[in-house]
Simulated assay, not measured.
Amino acid sequence: MTNFKKYISTYFTKRITVVVLLSVTLLGGCQTHPRGLDLTPTPRTLVYSYIIANGMARGRIMRGAVSHEQLIALAKIDRQALLSILIAQRYPSHRNFHLAEDAVIAYLAAIES
């Protein structure tokens, strides 16, 4: 009887080992090609970023934390950012998206300074 128990134990141990190894192999195959996160700007993300930056500028102006010269500079850079985004929407290209993204970043920097 002990040989039978030993046979059953060995049989199930081998089967479980095979199932576990097969499962790990199959699940490991799912992880071989990570997709990653795509962070390229799109017209929608650029417009959304501009709207947020515009709200930040409005808040700073409403607090009275902006001098007349700073207000004029903010208005100029605001217009440049908006124009860059509209150009990227109308003529989508990697270069135009990059220029629009840089304009929004410059707008944010102007708001913070």
Rank of each mutant, 00 (worst) to 15 (best):
V18C: 08
V18W: 05
V19Y: 09
V20H: 04
V20G: 06
V24N: 04
L27G: 12
G28Q: 08
G28F: 07
G29R: 10
C30T: 12
T32Y: 10
R35N: 05
G36Y: 07
L37Y: 13
D38R: 08
L39C: 11
P43L: 01
P43T: 02
T45S: 15
L46F: 06
S49Y: 00
Y50I: 06
Y50L: 15
I51E: 12
I52D: 04
M56W: 04
G59R: 10
I61G: 01
I61R: 13
M62W: 00
R63D: 11
R63E: 12
V66Q: 05
E69A: 12
E69W: 00
Q70C: 09
Q70H: 09
L71C: 06
L71E: 12
I72L: 11
L74W: 04
L74D: 03
I77T: 13
I77W: 01
D78R: 14
Q80W: 02
S84F: 05
L86P: 01
I87A: 12
I87L: 15
A88D: 00
R90K: 14
Y91G: 02
S93H: 00
S93M: 00
S93C: 04
S93T: 12
H94Q: 15
H94R: 13
N96T: 10
L99A: 00
L99M: 00
A100V: 08
A100S: 10
A103I: 14
I105K: 07
I105W: 00
A106L: 13
